[in-house]
């Protein structure tokens, strides 16, 4: 360090000093980093247990210096439910992609939210199956080309993309639901704030907290990382708007 300077931003210690396998510019890595920053800042490393999904983030446990479990595809919500019930004073999160949370695991997601399971969902919605090579997801946009929708998603045949944050916000058990993104420094800061708020609400035991990340997939979308930010802004946010869909603690404070 140069003399007369201080560190204002550095890699969190809770993020292991290991190169992440994600493609350049992937928000998975960004969210891993933000998550571990929060764990470090809140001083809850000893009390945090995470659940990884099947998907690109299947190896999330290789990077986060916390206890973690690897769940079967789609079942992270059931696994996280049980961890939180057995260890109610721990901070538990499930980290899931769109195939995991919104296709094969929809039942587990909805029922965990409806029971008000007091863990935090971190839902990475990039509109595509990244790990398996770019197939259609339940959140693939209308007309979006993937390897299994080569002519674009036909919503007459396949239905509209699922808006999970909006859906779960209708359930009584959910205390907080927000959709965030990481396309700009301001949005990334907001994303971190949302994740932190979710953990704080979890700590108070107020209900399920659900953070959806409108994420990117430069490799799956066949564009550069910088171009993926344009796709997000022009295509994704108009259908998947960023914002808070439910904030029970805020409502209570107003009352």
């Amino acid at each position: 360090m140069k003399e007369g300077y201080e560190v204002v931003y550095k890699r969190p210690k809770t993020l292991l000093d290991k190169r992440m396998h994600y493609c350049p510019g992937c928000f998975h890595a960004t969210i891993h980093k933000l998550l571990m920053e929060i764990v470090e800042e809140m001083g809850i490393q000893e009390k945090t247990v995470g659940v990884c999904p099947v998907g690109c983030s299947v190896f999330a446990y290789d990077y986060m210096d916390i206890d973690m479990q690897e769940a079967a595809h789609g079942r992270a919500a059931a696994v996280a439910t049980a961890i939180k019930r057995m260890l109610p004073d721990r901070y538990v999160f499930s980290y899931q992609g769109d195939g995991d949370l919104a296709a094969i695991g929809t039942a587990e997601t909805i029922h965990a939210c409806n029971r008000g399971e007091k863990f935090t969902f971190i839902f990475i919605n990039n509109g595509i199956y990244g790990m398996t090579g770019g197939q259609m997801a339940p959140t693939t946009l209308e007309g979006q080309k993937t390897t299994t929708s080569p002519y674009g998603r036909n919503v007459q045949k396949l239905g509209m993309p699922l808006k999970m944050a909006e859906m779960v916000s209708q359930l009584a058990g959910v205390a907080y639901a927000e959709r965030v993104s990481c396309n700009t420094p301001a949005n990334t800061r907001k994303a971190k704030k949302a994740l932190k708020k979710a953990f704080e609400i979890q700590g108070k035991g107020l209900g399920t907290t659900f953070i959806e990340v409108a994420s990117n997939c430069p490799s799956g979308w066949k564009c550069t990382p910088v171009e993926s930010l344009d796709w997000l802004k022009n295509k994704v946010y108009p259908y998947f708007p960023l914002g808070v869909f439910k904030d029970v603690p805020a409502v209570k404070e107003e009352v």
């Binding site: 300077y5 201080e6 931003y9 550095k10 994600y22 350049p24 960004t30 980093k33 990481c182 420094p185």
Partner: peptide
Amino acid sequence: IACANCAIMCPDAAITVYKKV
């Protein structure tokens, strides 16, 4: 200007930011 925007955007936490005291 040590705004740290770059580090916040860096997915891989590869950037450390220093500010003049």
